[in-house]
Nucleic acid binder design. Sequence first.
RNA 1: GGGCAGUUAGCUCAGCGGUAGAGCAUUCGCCUUACACGCGAAGGGUCACAGGUUCGAAUCCUGUACUGCCCACCA
Length: 897
Amino acid sequence: MLSKAYDPKPVEAKWAETWQKERLFISKPSAEKKPFVVVIPPPNITGALHIGHALNNTLQDVLIRYQRMLGHEAYWVPGTDHGGIATQNVMEKQLKAEGKTRHDLGREGFLARTWAWYEECGGTILSQLRKLGCALDLGKDNVRFTMDKPRAKAVFETFRSLWEKGLVYRGERMINWCARCGTALSDIEVEYEDEKSKLWHINYALEDGSGEVIVATTRPETMLGDTAVAVHPEDERYKEMTGKKLKLPLTDRLIPLVADEGVEKDFGTGAVKVTPAHDPLDFEIGQRHNLEVLRVVSYEGRMVNCPAKYEGLSVQQARKEVVQDLTEAGLLAKEEHYKHSVSKCYRCTSHIEPLVSEQWFVKMKDLAAPAMEAAEKEKVKFYPSSWKKPFVQWLSNIQDWCVSRQIWWGHRIPVWYCRSCSGDGLKFDEKGGLSRVSFSDGALPIVSQDKPAACPKCGGHDLLQDPDVLDTWFSSALWPFSVFGWPERTKELDYYYPTSVLVTGYEILYLWVARMVMSGLEHMGRVPFGQVYVHGIVRDKHGKKMSKSLGNTIDPLVMMEKYGTDALRFSLMAQTMGGRDIPFSEESIVGGRNFVNKLYNAARFLQMYLPETPAPLKAEKPAELADRWIKERYSAALKTSKAAMAEYDLPKAQDALYTFAWDEFCDWYLELAKPRLQGSGKDGVLALALELFTGTLKALHPFMPYVTEELYASLKGYLPEPGGYLLNERWPEIPEAGEGATAAMRELMDVITQIRVVRSQFEIPPGKLIKALAVSSDDGALARLKDASGYVSLLAKVEELAIGRDLSKPARAVSAISGAFNIYVPMDGTVDLEKEKGRLAKELEKARADGEQCARRLEDRTFMERAPKAEVEKIKARSEDCGGRIDRLTKILEELR
RNA sequence: GGGCAGUUAGCUCAGCGGUAGAGCAUUCGCCUUACACGCGAAGGGUCACAGGUUCGAAUCCUGUACUGCCCACCA
């Protein structure tokens, strides 16, 4: 005999290995079958999978397995992402623990080490995905990496093509600089956070001594880089002074007071200090007024180009010093508390320094236009659809994309420079390596993936590659076609592109999804996927974001160990309603674990009655009520589940099967089957139970692959058509079924429930067999109950059930009403009259209230005239029913007196 | 400052035009020969608020409040 509780560990290990060994998940282009393709959002090789990955990949796995079982050529393409800055940060942290920096290893050494890390970490991630049950073929030939050879080729081809179209350019612009990561970031890689700070009011005196201008700022240290003060042209307070010079405090510089539309009159003092090098708005003002761009913060985040006393200080230190010096000089007019949003690096949460820098950019407007159209016309359709609007809006406000990163790990920018032709445009670090490139200083680009043999202009051989690498999202943007070998025209590309659906969390909708849509349209001429399934973020049970620093993370691997993979998957799925964030906690996994156990025990129950040597059992057309009923319920559950899948409502699809399996199949059908399994009808019951249970296992397989595979394997020998792995089986056929048995069962189930209520309320010991009477004036109902009286005896533990029209209530009996029946349960001892009256009176009260409500509506002329006929009929029937109940209850109550 | 979502039982959420539902938690009774990771039963909600549409509103419309998220150069 199998153990009472399901032990997932050995089962999961066995099937995970078998599935991979059999290469069950591999796909080949097939002329006969329709492809269903999903490309995995490639996890960064930064460490272990987290709970968000577990959710994301469970959703994809469900879709893939489901589509396969529908008979489509379902292909889920596996891979990992090199993860640019994120991965480099992980490596640098490792090095730091060894007391080293990447510069100790040098660029090549650092890259070699990171590649080794990729081998290790990439493998770990893939094995974790396998553990999650993902239907991903992890054969070496099938797993992609955003930095492997074919993907590198795609990246180069993209860069080359954009360059030729003039869509990629190098220019000096305001960018977001993370001094800690030592690189520029794109606008969407910056996060904003409210911080408590101060608003300092600084006194700038006019050169001619005729007055002063007070400016308000949150960044006093940048005043050292001010090259003007600006006011609104219409501002009466400053009209007279505009054009005059101001003395810049703490320095000996003079700066002009300019008038600019960009200044808000009503904010602060109406005067802004202008630091074109370190503020986006100031940069614009600077451009309009031809102001000098004076950089006072270096790439290292230290003060430069300023009075010696501040030189080399960090921004924070400089702020303190400047404020103190201004105070001492009596130039600090005011200091007020102020809350404002500051920009932070999305990779390391350090403060971002906006600064002007020469970088590579991709021109976005022309790329965004077709993507907007695709979203608007739903060539790319969002689930839930509410994402369409923000998606389109984001595209419509798009800015050029800064794609160069001053890090080492990533696709090197495929541009080379000839040392002799590029002149001053190339800057070198102390070790003689190329550190910066400036087109404005004369650097001449040669676009090439590999080192060109010679400079096409001068024939020189001293060629150096641009030191920067591309934003990691540059290669991710190509993923839906680069995975199939683009730019090669492969047969995979032909067959699988465009892919079917992309499954992702909303946090990377712009970072990733939008860029894939744009790239797909630009390079392939077609959207990369027709549908986007957007899910939320897994949060802790209080709705807080999970983070290591808060200590509220849930490790999916630990949970899989503890509760089983199916349990984790089921529970995540159950809570991912509506595409919103998912509050998750360890407790919520218990529900999934319990359901897995329920299925396991249902199978164990069936096995008790099956012969040891498997032989096919053929189910006959159900004749008995319970059989007809369960088949109707099965049919309804499959129908609901299938319809929900079509709308990407995965939790609903799962829930329909859950409810059927537990509440209907186990709680009612199997209970009713127990005595029949002892008698001559055994084979018929077994065959039907097996048919429906294995069908349910099939339908549940996408959600909980392990336990279903295990149970199916143990039961399939008894089926007429045993089949193989569930993944290769067809999703169950939905039997034609009406609702007749469902209605008849409902009537019966209520009788059983009413007797159970009486038992429970009058504390009849659960094991004790009782007598009961069911009285009704409805002959049809009496006949139906007579036919099924065995069910009542069984499930309400009634040893003698008298059914009739004219049976009278025995003395010392408790009464209940169920549909057309008055039910009497004789008691051994005396009946607690107060209790009995109390509950019957409560019933009566309910019936009366309901009856009155019906009556009111039936008397309402407008209701009778305007409501649909069917509705009126329903109310009439309900009203009659209430009337009957009231009469019967009143009579019973009277007799109690 | 704009946009989007949410507000239903103690908690997490379904329901989205015709008598308020689930899971968990709580209470009571059961180790009933598949399952105590279980079985049976019970309690618990003026469906945020105010108007409107409708014979009828948790469900549709308008507004208010609160919460959360996204976007935006207000120093």
